[in-house]
């Protein structure tokens, strides 16, 4: 992949990722997250994984975050903007993040395939939609069906919970 495109998008993603945490205004945080998702999608696409990239935009940026934004706007979280920084939580959070980073670095360091170049793809353009579909509906059909049932149950649960109590 061209580093010319990798660095801007990676930087974009990280910058807005940090902005999600730093911003005091919840709406600004949510929007930063959207931009971060878009950067991630661009990285996926530059790896020729168009399907995942597009799904990233369609599902996360286009649907999930819209609902988030919706709820944030309806709640009117003005109080959030004036809240004091909790130093204990901040230090704890940074420590957890650093621990996670160390862990990932350690794993990558000890992974054999991380030290050698990837073998080139058999074909430069390959139909990832077809591959994902075949895998999902072929070898992983049962888990897929189970997830489907799970989502259905969750949907019915939500409908039941949000139903108005008959008076």
């Amino acid at each position: 992949m061209s580093p010319l495109l990798f660095w801007p998008f990676a930087l974009l993603m990280l910058m807005f990722g940090v902005a999600v945490v730093i911003n005091r205004n919840p709406v600004a945080s949510a929007l930063s997250l959207v931009v971060s998702f878009l950067g991630l999608a661009a990285l996926f696409m530059s790896l020729d994984a168009y399907f995942i990239g597009i799904i990233q935009v369609l599902v996360y940026a286009g649907a999930v975050m819209v609902l988030f934004l919706f709820i944030i706007m309806l709640l009117d979280l003005r109080a959030e903007e004036g809240r004091q920084v909790n130093w204990l939580a901040l230090i704890g959070g940074i420590a957890v993040a650093l621990a996670l980073l160390a862990q990932i670095l350690y794993v990558i360091h000890n992974l054999k395939s991380a030290h050698q170049a990837f073998p080139p793809l058999a074909r430069s353009t390959f139909d990832d939609v077809r591959n994902v579909g075949l895998l999902l509906f072929g070898s992983y059909n049962l888990p897929f069906q189970i997830i489907g049932v799970l989502v259905l149950v969750a949907t019915i649960g939500v409908v039941l919970l949000s139903r108005r109590e008959p008076r």
Binding site: I54, V57, L58, A61, G62, A63
Partner: peptide, 8 residues
């Protein structure tokens, strides 16, 4: 995907 961003 792009059309769904129009809502923002």
């Amino acid at each position: 995907a792009i059309a769904s961003l129009g809502v923002y």
